[in-house]
């Protein structure tokens, strides 16, 4: 039986892990490779590395880092952050990334999704969508959620799926950072509108939030950052809990 996935997200700045990660026993918790390996050995099903640097050296640094991660980590990982061209994706996949996540570039030019899918296949193209609930419904946001657009979220998600994306990574800007649970109503609605796997993101605070996003939100995977990095939730404990709650999970 296919299991639900638990995915820690690591923010990368100039080749280093950021966001006050607090790990006992790691030689260097700022080293994305060491941290990634730690998570892989402690129950994570996949990893997401989000590059938030914006320097000219960015691409070169990221390529070297991806290669290093691929050499050391034996579970799948996705790389995202500012990816905007076929050349970017090619470089990341050549260096061993399993999937790439695109966001703003896909909104600016939706054909990019189709082009990437036809060149590399659906299986490695994740489209990340940041959205926020406005008076007239859910709208897509850009630039890490900071810039609102008039694009209707569910319609955009349908186009993303029709263009062949393999997965949607949906972050609710209303829930992100609140630790009050995932956007389960919107997630469940999204699952009815598209027939590709959905990764829920934004709002993880407790074990029961993960249960709810799988049961009520119908999510296929759940992504979180700080609750894992600050050891508020241990993935092994979380997975034991989910299993006891009757959710298919890899232990």
């Amino acid at each position: 039986m296919l299991t639900k996935r638990i995915i820690p997200c690591l923010d990368i700045l100039d080749g280093r892990t950021v966001k006050g990660v607090n790990f006992v026993g790691l030689r260097d918790a700022g080293d994305p490779v060491e941290l990634g390996r730690y998570y892989a050995e402690n129950g994570a099903d996949e990893l997401v590395f989000l590059d938030i640097s914006a320097t000219e050296q960015k691409r070169k640094t990221l390529a070297a880092l991806v290669r290093h991660i691929a050499a050391e980590v034996d579970i799948p990982f996705t790389v995202g952050g500012g990816i905007s061209s076929i050349a970017d994706v090619d470089m990341l996949l050549q260096n061993g990334a399993d999937k790439v996540s695109i966001n703003s570039a896909a909104v600016r030019r939706p054909e990019l999704i189709s082009e990437l899918v036809s060149k590399f296949g659906s299986q490695c193209i994740v489209v990340a969508i940041d959205a926020k609930k406005h008076e007239k419904g859910w709208k897509v946001h850009l630039v890490g959620g900071k810039v609102p657009t008039e694009i209707e979220f569910f319609g955009w998600a349908e186009e993303v799926a029709e263009r062949g994306a393999g997965e949607i990574l949906f972050t609710s800007m209303d829930h992100d950072g609140t630790k009050n649970g995932f956007a389960n109503n919107a997630l469940a609605q999204l699952s009815k509108r598209v027939n590709i796997p959905i990764i829920a993101s934004g709002g993880a605070g407790t074990n029961s939030h993960f249960r709810d996003t799988f049961k009520k939100g119908k999510a296929d995977a759940a992504l979180a950052a700080s609750v894992f990095h600050f050891k508020e939730i241990q993935i092994t404990d979380l997975k034991q809990y989910l299993k006891e709650e009757g959710i298919a999970i890899r232990i």
């Binding site: 039986m1 296919l2 299991t3 996935r5 099903d45 796997p197 296929d220």
Partner: peptide, 10 residues
């Protein structure tokens, strides 16, 4: 069912 199948299966 959702296509592609992505994840860990037995």
């Amino acid at each position: 069912i959702k296509v592609p199948q992505i994840g860990w299966n037995t």
